[in-house]
Amino acid sequence: MGNYRLKNYLICSLILLGMMLFPLFNNNFVIRFGTDILMFAIMASAWNIIGGYTGYASFGNVVFFGIGAYVTAILMEKAGLNFAVAFVLSGFGAALFAILIGLPVLRLRGHYFAIATLGVAEAMKALVQNLELTEGNSGIYLPMLDLSVKSQYYFFFYMMLGTLVVTLLVTYLILKAKFGYSLIAIREDEDAANSVGINTTYAKTMAFALSGFFTGLAGSIYAYQQAFIKPGPVFTVGTTVKMIVMAVFGGIGQLFGPLLGAFCIEIISEVLSNYFLAIHTLFFGAVVILAIVFTPKGMIDIASQKKFGLAYFLQNIRENRV
């Protein structure tokens, strides 16, 4: 057992070391691509906390991304704060919003929760498009980062990497603690969890807040990196779909599933958009469909199965069709 654990730690450290050294051997374009993968890995991992472990499939997590981005933009541009402060406050702003919205919305289950969160995200987009503070559809410019071009690429890469590591570490610690077991109990049977004395309202609201916190941090870094944000792209429902598909593709309720999913889906999307520039979004739709039909349990499940290839897919389909 001790050996097994040591081996796991060793593998994780090696992967982390690999990611830390990644920018040193690559050009700006590739570093930027890596930064995007890390950003989606953060969001998919954060989605995993509420959608994967707690079983509340949120279809509005992009709202936290958008709030994080806008809090950073407003605090830096209008209040003149520096990025470090804005970054932290963005996370807490998104978490606070998650708590406020979660208290009523988390009472809903299944489809109703999914639709309500989707509605919250769309309502927020419409609100930001109309508010004076957010400058509506014309968007907000952020102060530029005062560093050389190369250092900027490094800065955003390591910001994302650091946030991802913290996200995964916190998720790992939660899973080891009683709180993690509460979340999984809620996913498996919420009424039973309630009746054995778990404060389910508290637990799921906290899970939602954590999910919002990390997604908000990703939004904050994104806004600073872009130096200009608009409601349309920042609150697009496509981002939510992407994080869910990544989590599903990698493996829902698996610590490293979303990271793996983000890596695979981003690379597939990138290859597609290189070869089929005009129609790559069309292919993205096809990737979503194929990923869902063939790997509803994720890559990590495939890796742990004895059946491979066609036999595995057919078994999945046999289990799930009518």
């Binding site: 499939a57 489809h111 869902i292 039909v293 389909i317 289990e319 799930n320 069709r321 009518v322």
Partner: peptide, 8 residues
């Protein structure tokens, strides 16, 4: 093909 898997 996937109608009986989880709702989401």
């Amino acid at each position: 093909l996937i109608i009986r898997s989880s709702a989401f």
